[in-house]
Design a protein around this nucleic acid. Sequence first.
DNA 1: TGCTAATTCGCATGAGTTGCAGATTGGGTG
DNA 2: CACCCAATCTGCAACTCATGCGAATTAGCA
Lengths: 158, 158
Amino acid sequence: MSCRLGGGGITVVVVRTPTELTTAFRERGLKVTPQRQLLFRLLHANPTHPTAEALFATASEQMPGISLRTVYQTLNDLAAMGELRVLLFAGGSTRFDPNVSDHHHAQCDRCGELHDVYVDRLEALTVAGFDGFVAERASIVFSGLCAACSKLSNHPNQ
Amino acid sequence: MSCRLGGGGITVVVVRTPTELTTAFRERGLKVTPQRQLLFRLLHANPTHPTAEALFATASEQMPGISLRTVYQTLNDLAAMGELRVLLFAGGSTRFDPNVSDHHHAQCDRCGELHDVYVDRLEALTVAGFDGFVAERASIVFSGLCAACSKLSNHPNQ
DNA sequence: TGCTAATTCGCATGAGTTGCAGATTGGGTG
DNA sequence: CACCCAATCTGCAACTCATGCGAATTAGCA
């Protein structure tokens, strides 16, 4: 089985700006605190799929005293609003993906790095065994070696 | 750019028999205890994607006093040997899949049920954004409603 | 400016999993 | 068949990640 990889088409990352998130929060009767504004900024166009702890660490630098509890709270609010995707992967805690466009992931077996990929022609898949299951979404995770780790294994002396 | 995903052709559900697992354990210098034999039997052709706790509960019926610690230990050993796939899904703890053939999963948004599906023509996918990533495997999780829950939503009066 | 519900924060709690150590045992060896 | 030792089992403690709770604070509207 093999898969053809598209020639690096342009990928559009759709991530709400802090301003848009502010509006979305207010519309729902949620308040926009300095803590939340900071998190909105840290998440904007953030491609690192951070964990709550990672965001907390970064946020603490800019706002000493911010609580880990607040980070979780805000992340959960965002996820409930559909502004954040929650990702579960091997090797640790929940990661949050501010990229809510239709995309998938590639995870490196060696360093654990996770990055976004865009898959087309999903409808071309042939699936057996649905047995009445009505699929609405598909989430694909590719495993292998990232560019950096792939180079390393070609030069094992490193 | 293209990637080859291992395997291919007709998908066969390969689940080692307790006897095969016994041999595999001995070959690696691991001992085969009554506890492990029981777990081998409980896992054989088990389509339920059980959690460690679920296996522990079933095992306890047949072997009162077996330790949850032992269940974890054996599951981890099996996973390390590649005889078990470790699955992480929303809604709780790690699940273990004794079906190590090339397959994927469908999870019901409503009841959480998880079942196996077989995907063909992965080669038809067009993937952008690998950016040097060398994909070796792909894991697909479909979300939607299982047959039972799908019927329920068509008859909301229930 | 004042009110009130939402939020923050810190601590306690809970679920899931692993580390540890003493007692036990599988299974190769003599 | 008995012995021996490393592997295993078990129970408990500890650890990680995440959430519940409540008193103090604050955003945002009147």
